[in-house]
Design a binder for these strands. Structure first.
Lengths: 210, 210
DNA sequence: CATCATATGACATGATTATGTGATTGGCTA
DNA sequence: TAGCCAATCACATAATCATGTCATATGATG
């Protein structure tokens, strides 16, 4: 039996979903509240549900803020967003905050039911459109990471040494070259990157700008 | 009509999927090859398919390498992975390389068919288990960003100065304090972070470890 | 073959950083 | 109120870094 809680301020939608889910033989949905604040009150007093369906636009605290707080207090509750918002930002923030699923409100009741089952089984239900945005964010973030530096392999070695926090002496030891050679490489690196301190090289490197 | 190509070295699986898909009234699957290399040859000569189903483990070039090359040459082809691998690394690499969907090989033929339709409509089909890993990667990456440093606000200011590549002198100017005060703060920062160079502070900071 | 980029090395010097050892002030709290 | 901590500043010194100038060797490329 999967127990479910709902946080949704639209009474019509809320009671529709609640009644439908509670009607399922493997589910129980007794708690359907208006706001995160009320849900937090409830969680303090009563047994926790397995799954929470959560809106984003709510009176008082937003659903996204709510995720963070609820997940921190009750990490075992699986949270699924059920909202009209499909902009990357809200999706992303929800997932980072700890949501494990993200459905749009036009999702049919049987699909919601299936998604809850998926969630309880350790999956992450998302509509394909949402998944697409998640993936896009991925490749946007990660692809930038190769601005093709014109550093030679050896220079890149030296940069790695710097990033590891090594002194010239230690870099020289690591690659078994003289400290003056390290200096020479660093000089060239500075020229190529238009910087003039270790600090800037490290920062550039860790920002993926090399 | 959705045209489909398959890259899969297991002949049995390949021809099974091909025949099933080609049988669908809204699909055409005429091209099913062993390797990325062969597919690249084919793409050069003939019309491109809308969707490519791609294995990862292949003779010659791996499917993941293949994604990058194919996507670069033919960005309009949607690529869906169909593989036995479900480790985060392979999933992640595939998505970064440009795959838009990721299914496991135990997926049923009708589900594969549906997924292809989803893909063609701009969605991103993934099994819920895969989606879960994608989401986990997300929150792993992003959540770390607040390991609650015990640095004071002022110390954090100084760290920001370091990250910006400033010298002690410039940091002193920025915050209108003496250079010795900057030194003093840096001393304390080093103690708290257990480091002893600017370089390490910058690295820690940019790695989100502060 | 001449040239250029890369990798290696040396010597020198001024600038910056790392670290030790202090001190003073203001705010918070046991 | 006594004590602690954050923030401020000072002086000193050794280590490290940034930069200038120069040199040798090797491999690739026109």
């Amino acid at each position: 039996m999967i127990t479910i809680g709902i946080v949704e301020d639209n009474v019509k939608i809320r009671s529709l979903i609640q009644r439908y889910l509670d009607m399922q033989e493997n589910m129980s949905c007794k708690v359907a509240l208006d706001s995160v604040e009320e849900m937090l009150e409830h969680l303090k007093e009563y047994d926790n549900p397995d799954v929470l369906l959560m809106d984003i636009q709510l009176p008082g605290m937003s659903g996204i803020e709510g995720i963070g707080i609820i997940k921190k207090e009750y990490p075992d509750i699986e949270i699924m967003m059920l909202t009209v918002y499909h902009d990357s930002h809200k999706i992303f923030d929800s997932l980072v905050a700890g949501a494990s699923g993200y459905l749009l409100k036009h999702t049919s009741l049987p699909e919601i039911k299936e998604s809850i089952e998926t969630l309880a089984e350790g999956g992450a239900p998302m509509s394909p459109q949402i998944a697409r945005k998640v993936i896009q964010h991925f490749s946007d973030t990660e692809k930038k990471k190769k601005p093709e530096s014109n550093l030679t392999a050896r220079e890149q070695d030296i940069v790695n040494g710097l990033v590891d926090g090594l002194s010239y002496k230690l870099i020289a030891d690591r690659y078994d070259i003289s400290i003056d050679t390290v200096r020479a490489h660093i000089r060239n690196i500075y020229k190529k990157l238009h910087v003039n301190s270790k600090a800037e090289v490290i920062a550039k490197s860790l920002r993926g700008e090399i």
